[in-house]
Every structure is written in C-alpha cells, then in structure tokens.
Amino acid sequence: MSVGENSLPPEPADALAAVVALRRLADQLEAAAVEQAMRAGWSWPQVSEALGVTRQAVHKKHAKRLIAAGVKLRRRGDERV
C-alpha cells in the first residue's frame, strides 16, 4: 500500500477519517500482537524494543489487560539465555 500524493483521498474529510480508522486498526493490531508475543513467552523489554517504545509505556498500556486475560507474564530475571 502506498499513500502517495496520488492516492490521498481528494476529500479532506475522507483523508482525516482514514487517519482515525487506521489509528483504531493499529490499536487493535497492537493489542493482538502484544498478547500473541507475551503468550509466546516474549519479555516486556523484547516487546517494547520491537515496538520502538519504552517498556513503561507498553507495560502501562497492556499489563493489566493481559493479566486479566490470564496470560502468564515473564518477570524480570526470568530471561532465558
């Protein structure tokens, strides 16, 4: 997919609404992807590095939800070598 000059929707309302919808989709994708990674045994530092955000940010955004969903989270010190 490319969003070059040519493919920007001609109507500003459509272009702006697309931004809103993409953010929503990205949030959903992030939630699913983080859950998948944590279920597969990834650690917070690994997930945060992959997402390019701080560990605090990713933890704050997802920890409670994952704990509530019964995902077993690796703690610091559990790192496998």
Partner: peptide, 27 residues
C-alpha cells in the same frame, strides 16, 4: 461500515486483518 469505508479510502481492507477481539481493555 464507516470504519471499513474510511480504511478503503487509503487502500486498506480491514478484512485483511482477521484480528481476535482484544482481551478486554485494561485501563
């Protein structure tokens, strides 16, 4: 429909993402 329509404006098909519903939002 609105979400689907708006995504289609930039060539994205939400059908391409068969995402599981998020485990209930935490915050």
């Amino acid at each position: 429909r609105e979400c689907e329509h708006s995504l289609s404006m930039v060539g994205v098909s939400p059908a391409a993402y068969d995402l599981p519903g998020p485990s209930h939002a935490s915050q």
